[in-house]
């Protein structure tokens, strides 16, 4: 019992350190994060292929120009976000090892397709 509570205490400390780290990360790395814009028009991602460098965090800004909402989804990137119609949304991806990471719009998966190529 004492072992468990001790353990969770150390976890708590770890979490607060994580949070502090993340704050410092935000302020320091924010300006350096590359930004890539992707449009959604007519249930298509434009461009449908983007290339980002390896081991780098990237900020995707997705503009949805359709009336309908769309959900950016990628199992490979582990990302999921609803982009409301006529609005934009921000998603941070990476750092990632080199490879291809397909993504799709879950609401219109047959047309809204694309992939992130990490080199």
């Amino acid at each position: 019992m004492s072992y468990i509570s001790h353990y969770s205490c150390s976890k708590k400390a770890f979490i607060s350190i994580c949070c502090l780290l993340s704050l410092s990360f935000m302020t320091r790395v924010y300006s350096a994060t590359p930004i890539i814009n992707i449009d959604i028009r007519n249930h298509l991602f434009i461009p449908s292929e983007i290339t980002i460098p390896e081991n780098t965090k990237v900020k995707l800004i997705i503009h949805n120009y359709d009336e309908e909402d769309e959900e950016f989804e990628s199992y490979e990137l582990n990302r999921e976000k609803v982009i409301i119609g006529k609005r934009k949304g921000t998603i941070f991806i990476g750092p990632l090892p080199a490879g291809e990471y397909p993504f799709f719009g879950e609401f219109f998966p047959k047309t809204a397709q694309g992939k992130v190529i990490v080199e």
Binding site: C18, Y30, K57, Y75, N78, R79, I91, G94, P95, P97
Partner: peptide, 26 residues
């Protein structure tokens, strides 16, 4: 935590492992 990482409120890191070949979330 995943959502907070996606929002950049928690630091992003390289994935620890990849078990998608074993059991894919799809």
């Amino acid at each position: 935590s995943l959502l907070l990482i996606q929002a950049d409120w928690l630091p992003a890191q390289m994935p620890l492992w990849d078990t998608s070949t074993f059991l894919s979330e799809k």
